[in-house]
């Protein structure tokens, strides 16, 4: 059996394989560098950055659910300046693309951060527009097409030549409307899905498990939602980083068939540090079995009824 090529392109960025470590589950790579060479990955999307350091939410921050987890970390991070000074140089020791995920309180803050990240030479910027603590309140940036477009426009104007990818929230009625709005505003790529809002209650104490009551659902439970949304959004025509419940080659291939150029592995890393490599190997096996010369041929190759 021949070896299919694993290289893919995402918004013009060459990845040696389609597997990306998802933001928030992989820190800045340091912990997982104990287990394997980070250069084995296509890209690392770093822990969500904010302009100032954030200490995050009070615990408990995690609850297990059927085939999933709820999390409520609250964007704990050392701030963009500490990332640029301490974490980016570490990641640059590896032959792996670096995606910087960022959240701002205002469009201007997104712009300022994009400028810093672009000047520092990150490979791709991912805008998190479903941050729970933004000016307009709640998930507003990610749930209103006009606000999503405004953030995208300001980010693009400050990102120089660095491509900008917008991470979409699934907590909306019409994800295509948001996707179209950010595409029209100049986004270079889309990533989806962010977590689904959820809740788990301890029946004995009648208390939610999470200290903030609600949190974001991820893991295999959300895969069908992610596949459906990637498929719907693919008609917008932007390159897509698919995520949501990827745990093996099959789940990754589903997202690619639905339209994703690359896939991110998140929750699966929590249980198994080697999960991204297993997804990569699983994808390669599927592409080989199907006689493809390149794994990229899976992208959008769905045969819908």
């Amino acid at each position: 059996m021949h070896e299919p090529s694993m290289a893919v392109k995402l918004a013009g960025v060459e990845l040696k394989n389609p597997v990306v470590a998802a933001s928030g589950t992989f820190g800045f790579g340091r912990e997982y560098s104990q287990f394997y060479d980070l250069s084995e990955l296509g890209a690392i999307c770093v822990k969500g950055l904010t302009a100032a350091p954030r200490k995050g939410n009070p615990p408990p921050r995690i609850a297990e659910t059927p085939m999933g987890i709820l999390n409520s970390v609250g964007l704990q991070n050392p701030g963009i300046d500490a990332f640029l000074a301490q974490e980016l140089p570490f990641l640059r020791r590896y032959d792996v693309k670096v995606i910087a995920n960022l959240s701002g309180d205002t469009p201007e803050e997104y712009g300022q951060m994009c400028e810093k990240l672009s000047q520092a030479g990150v490979d791709l910027i991912e805008l998190n527009i479903s941050c729970p603590n933004v000016k307009a309140g709640g998930l507003a940036y990610g749930t209103r097409p006009d606000l999503a477009a405004e953030v995208t426009r300001v980010a693009k104007a400050h990102a120089g030549a660095t491509p900008v990818m917008v991470k979409l929230s699934p907590n909306v009625t019409d994800v295509v409307a948001i996707a179209q709005a950010v595409a029209d505003a100049g986004a270079d790529a889309l990533s989806l899905i962010n977590t689904l809002l959820g809740m788990r209650i301890d029946v004995a104490s009648r208390r939610p498990i999470l200290r903030r009551n609600t949190g974001g659902l991820s893991g295999p439970a959300v895969l069908p939602v992610a596949v459906r949304m990637v498929w719907e959004v693919s008609r917008v025509g932007l390159p897509i980083l698919g995520m949501g419940g990827v745990s093996d080659g099959d789940s990754a291939a589903q997202l690619m068939l639905a339209g994703a150029s690359a896939v991110a592995v998140g929750t699966a890393c929590l249980a198994d540090p080697y999960a991204p490599l297993q997804v990569r190997d699983g994808l390669r096996d599927i592409a080989a079995r199907q006689g493809l010369s390149s794994v990229a041929q899976l992208t959008g190759a769905i045969q819908p009824w």
């Binding site: 912990e31 995050g56 408990p60 921050r61 498990i209």
Partner: peptide
């Protein structure tokens, strides 16, 4: 003890409040 995710210090869920007003992580 705290509810834990990755166990290696990457996911930041097992937060323990510290006297400096921030959080340390139980796993790491």
């Amino acid at each position: 003890e705290e509810r834990m995710g990755c166990g290696v210090g990457a996911c930041l869920v097992c937060a323990c409040p510290t006297v400096d007003g921030g959080y340390a992580h139980v796993c790491k």
